[in-house]
Computed example of a mutant assay.
Amino acid sequence: MAGLVLPDRAVARPRPVTDDEHVVLPGDSLWSIAASRPSGEPVEARWRAIWAANHAVIGDDPDLILPGQRLLLPSTDHDRTTP
């Protein structure tokens, strides 16, 4: 393959990820995402909240998330401040 010319192509650059988003990487699971973003609530409850907030992206099978999917990380009661 040395010496072969690659065709010119546009490469999409995803917008930066914020604290309330996560872009799925190979090997990620909802459990690992929930565990990597401590929120003060149990991981079991957190991954289910992430699934519920992203059901339109993930679908009915929470075990099937795909690299590149951008997931919204819902806020929790622990994230909110009381005036």
Rank of each mutant, 00 (worst) to 15 (best):
S32R: 12
P26C: 15
H78P: 01
P67T: 08
A12N: 14
A10S: 13
H55C: 10
G68S: 09
P62D: 03
A49N: 06
L30V: 07
W47H: 15
A45Y: 00
A2D: 13
V57E: 02
L4S: 15
L71H: 00
D20A: 02
D19C: 10
G27V: 04
E44T: 13
P16N: 05
D20T: 09
V57P: 08
H78C: 04
I58T: 09
S75W: 02
P38T: 05
V5M: 14
V24W: 11
G68F: 08
G27W: 08
A52I: 03
H78N: 05
D60Y: 13
A56S: 15
L71S: 00
P83E: 08
R13F: 05
L66R: 15
R13Y: 07
G59F: 09
T18L: 14
L64F: 03
G40T: 09
P7T: 09
S75P: 07
T81P: 09
D60L: 11
I65G: 02
P67V: 04
V23K: 03
S75C: 07
V5F: 11
A34W: 02
S32C: 13
M1S: 04
P83K: 06
I65V: 13
E21A: 03
P67D: 01
P42N: 10
A10K: 11
D77K: 06
I58G: 05
A49F: 03
V23H: 04
L25R: 15
S39P: 02
D61I: 10
A53K: 01
D79P: 02
D19I: 12
G40A: 12
